[in-house]
Amino acid sequence: MRRITISLDDSIAEQFDQLIERRGYENRSEAFRDLLRHHIETERKMTYTALHCVATVSYIYNHHERGLASRLTAAQHDHHDLCVTSTHVHLDHDNCLETIILRGKFKAVSAFADSLIAQSGVRHGNIHIIPVQIDQPLRSRHVHLLPGT
Score class of each variant (00 low, 15 high):
Ala55Asp: 02
His142Asn: 12
Leu68Ser: 02
Ile130Trp: 03
Leu82Ala: 07
Arg33Tyr: 04
Ser11Gln: 06
Leu8Lys: 12
His80Ala: 06
Ala113Met: 11
Leu91Pro: 00
Pro147Ala: 02
Leu146Arg: 12
Arg44Lys: 12
Thr42Trp: 06
Leu102Asn: 00
Val84Ser: 01
Phe16Asn: 08
Tyr59Lys: 06
His39Glu: 14
Leu68His: 01
Leu116Ile: 07
Thr99Arg: 10
Ile134Met: 11
Arg33Asp: 05
Asn95Lys: 11
Leu102Ala: 06
Asp34Arg: 01
Glu43Gln: 15
Leu51Ile: 06
His39Val: 10
Leu72Tyr: 08
Ile129Leu: 13
Ile12Phe: 14
Val89Gln: 07
Leu36Met: 02
His90Lys: 15
Leu51Asn: 05
Pro131Tyr: 00
Tyr59Ser: 00
Arg33Ser: 07
Pro147Tyr: 11
Leu51His: 13
Pro131Ile: 14
Ser140Phe: 13
Val54Leu: 05
Ile12Glu: 05
Thr5Ser: 09
Ala111Pro: 03
His124Leu: 07
Gly148Phe: 04
Thr56His: 08
Leu146His: 13
Asp81Cys: 02
His77Trp: 04
Val54Cys: 04
Phe16Gln: 05
Thr47Pro: 04
Arg2Phe: 12
Ile100Asp: 00
Asn95Val: 14
Ile100Met: 10
Cys53Thr: 01
Asn95Gly: 08
Gln76Val: 01
Ile60Thr: 12
Arg22Thr: 04
Glu26Met: 14
Arg66Pro: 07
Thr73Ser: 15
Lys105Phe: 10
Thr87His: 10
Ile101His: 03
Ile130Ala: 15
Phe32Cys: 09
Leu68Met: 05
Thr85Ala: 13
Leu97Thr: 05
Cys83Trp: 04
Val122Cys: 03
Lys105Leu: 15
Met1Asp: 09
Thr149Asp: 15
Lys107Gly: 13
Ile129Gly: 09
Glu26Trp: 09
Arg23His: 04
Thr149Gln: 15
Ala50Ser: 08
Ile40Glu: 11
Val57Asn: 04
Asp135Leu: 15
Glu98Ser: 02
Gln133Ala: 05
Arg139Val: 01
Thr73Ala: 15
Arg141Gln: 14
His38Phe: 15
Gly121Ser: 07
Leu35Asn: 10
Met46Thr: 15
Val84Met: 09
Ser110His: 02
Val132Thr: 07
Val122Asp: 01
Gly125Thr: 03
Lys105Val: 13
Val109Lys: 00
Leu72Gly: 05
Ser86Thr: 12
Arg2Met: 07
Ser29Ile: 10
Val89Leu: 11
